[in-house]
Amino acid sequence: MALLRTKKESKSTVNTEELTRKIRKTPMFRKHIPMEAGIGWPIPLQKEGKLYVILPCFGFHNTNEKGKTALFPPFATITIDWSKQEPVAYHNLRKNSPATELTWDEQTGFFPHEAVAKMTIGEYKQKRSELLAMYDEMFQILEASGEFSSEWVARFSSLLRTLMEPQLEVYYRVLAPTFFERFLVD
């Protein structure tokens, strides 16, 4: 039985948004990741005919400025086998940095960033849910070895560009250069 699904759930009923909540209940997450950590934008990985989802975990904390949250770079990733909905790998980015020229343990900026600062909480949540639903579509297309339409890519890229924290972009690009080169465009 998959760790991220109940017995009644089929593979298709666990979506990306649920995955980002349910991962917190797994032994791997609880062992390595503080419960107050944020879970960043999923990164698909195709390897040896299988689809995996890499979830970057980042730090944040409230500041003395009302409405501002301090952001820290991803400090770890957890990789999920998408078909089994099970965590299969943990990677500590501070101990094994994929880019030693970057600082992985100091504050990098603030949330909300300019592109979302004027949105209401409801507007932000709606756009976030829409993007995560598009990740579901992406994973289905990747599992089926399908192709993305140009319209789909344009909408996904627009949402990702709007919601991606600019201060964290360089870290995402290090974690998955090909993916973000294709989908995180200006």
Results as ranks from 00 to 15, higher is better:
Lys7Tyr: 10
Lys8Val: 06
Ser12Gly: 04
Ser12Tyr: 12
Thr13Cys: 11
Val14Gly: 01
Glu18Thr: 11
Glu18Ser: 13
Leu19Ile: 06
Thr20Ala: 02
Arg24Glu: 11
Thr26Leu: 02
Phe29Lys: 00
Arg30Thr: 11
Arg30Gly: 04
His32Arg: 13
His32Phe: 05
Gly38Leu: 04
Ile43Leu: 00
Tyr52Ile: 04
Pro56Arg: 01
Phe58Ala: 03
Ala70Ser: 06
Phe72Glu: 05
Pro74His: 14
Ser83Met: 15
Lys84Glu: 15
Pro87Arg: 12
Val88Trp: 08
Asn92Trp: 07
Leu93Lys: 09
Pro98Met: 03
Trp104His: 03
Asp105Val: 01
Gln107Thr: 08
Ala115Gln: 11
Ala115Gly: 01
Val116Tyr: 05
Val116Pro: 08
Met119Asp: 10
Arg128His: 07
Arg128Cys: 00
Arg128Val: 12
Leu132Glu: 09
Asp136Ile: 10
Glu143Met: 11
Ser145Lys: 09
Gly146Thr: 15
Phe148Asn: 08
Ser149Val: 06
Glu151Trp: 04
Glu151Thr: 09
Trp152Ile: 05
Trp152Pro: 01
Arg155Gly: 08
Phe156His: 11
Arg161Asn: 15
Met164Gln: 09
Met164Glu: 14
Glu165Ala: 07
Leu168Asn: 09
Glu169Arg: 06
Val170Asp: 13
Ala176Ser: 11
Pro177Glu: 08
Thr178Val: 06
Thr178Leu: 10
Phe179Lys: 12
Phe179Gly: 02
Arg182Ser: 08
Phe183Met: 10
Val185Asp: 14
Asp186Leu: 11
Asp186Met: 06
